[in-house]
Amino acid sequence: MKDVAEAANVSVSAASKILRGDVSRFGEATCQRVLEAAERLGWRRNLLVSSIQTGRTQTVGVMIPPYDSFWVNVLSGIHKRLAEADYLPITVWQGDLEHMPHFEADEQEGLKQINRLLDRRVDALIMWPTFAVAYRQHIAELAERKVPVVVIDYQPDEPFCDTVGTNEALAAKTIAKHLLDLGHRRIACISSRESKSQTWALERRQQFERAVTFHPEAKVKSWRLNSEGSNGVEVATEILTCDFRPTAVFAVSDHEARDVYEAAITLGLSIPSDLSVVGFADLDFAAHLTPPLSTLRQRPREIGAEAASIVLRRLDKSLSDSNVESKIEADFILRESTGPAP
């Protein structure tokens, strides 16, 4: 910095301010001299020194794995918004992708990852639901450290952090109305594991059941996967061969919808002639199923950007002390997997 200041014929203080972007009090020519000198001499910011001076590392811990196309796009939204504010996301997860989404069985490993980020003095944390369960037990420590936390797709019984998710109630009503308008009156719902971190699946199913039963002639029956989430095709087969004999199935995610497709093919059922299927998320494979899947398209990039924006607003203290609960709308995508009730 001293060399840059000398080369540009300004004080060290002035060079420091200009190179940090504080150019309002200096002339254009002065700023240009400093910038040219810095480039010529190969000067680079030392953020370690800056973090000591400001108490901020300009980093955000992002505890979200690239599990599927939804979460990949959430990460994209987070990264873009943080980059705009000159913050760096540090993305970690526990275990390996082959064992997802069941890696939360080792909760201590999740806590270890949280501590790795805190030991590196991240300014805030953005988490997916599994880590939120582990975080909840350590809320006092994080609150004491004044580390803002935003959780995506998790709705705790008692609010303890900021959350961002999908407007599940409106989305469920949209799907129910679509199937009811097509004349379906026996409708099944196949849910996920509904583990303690999958509050999104529980709310999605319950809101759908409520929306269907509002119709006086319609009946809905729900199934869910086992605790490992490994029996999707078996559950789908049970749904399609039980006495209830649904004419339509709503799957709480496109993953379960794909299981319904596989079971229907094995049983010789035609989609949508014999059975209508609706998914949720519009994952990257949904449009390539045969037939293409009707589904609720979430807005993952918008969800990620919103989570990052809340973190930034917490850091600049522009939010009140009350917890933020942000809901992002979803869009119904009509494809060939739904049709009139047979």
Rank of each mutant, 00 (worst) to 15 (best):
V4I: 10
A8F: 08
S11G: 14
G21W: 02
F26Q: 08
C31K: 13
E39S: 11
R40Q: 15
L41A: 10
G42R: 06
R44G: 06
L48T: 13
L48S: 15
V49F: 09
N73E: 15
G77F: 08
L82S: 08
A85H: 11
L97I: 14
E98G: 09
F103N: 11
A105C: 09
E107N: 04
Q108H: 12
G110H: 11
K112D: 13
R121I: 08
V122H: 01
V122M: 06
L125P: 09
V133A: 00
I139Y: 14
E141K: 05
A143C: 01
V147C: 11
V147S: 06
P148A: 05
V151S: 14
I152K: 03
Y154T: 06
D162Y: 10
T163L: 04
T163F: 05
A188L: 01
L202E: 02
E203R: 15
R210M: 10
P216H: 13
A218F: 02
K219P: 00
K219D: 05
R224H: 11
N226H: 02
V233H: 02
V235I: 15
V235A: 11
C242D: 12
D243K: 08
D243R: 09
F244A: 08
P246A: 04
V249Y: 02
R258D: 12
Y261T: 09
A263D: 02
I265F: 10
L267E: 10
L269Q: 03
I271L: 02
I271T: 03
P272L: 11
S273Q: 15
L275F: 01
V277A: 07
H288C: 11
H288W: 15
P291N: 14
P292F: 11
S294Y: 08
P300T: 04
I310H: 11
S318H: 11
D321K: 10
S322F: 03
S326N: 09
K327R: 14
K327S: 08
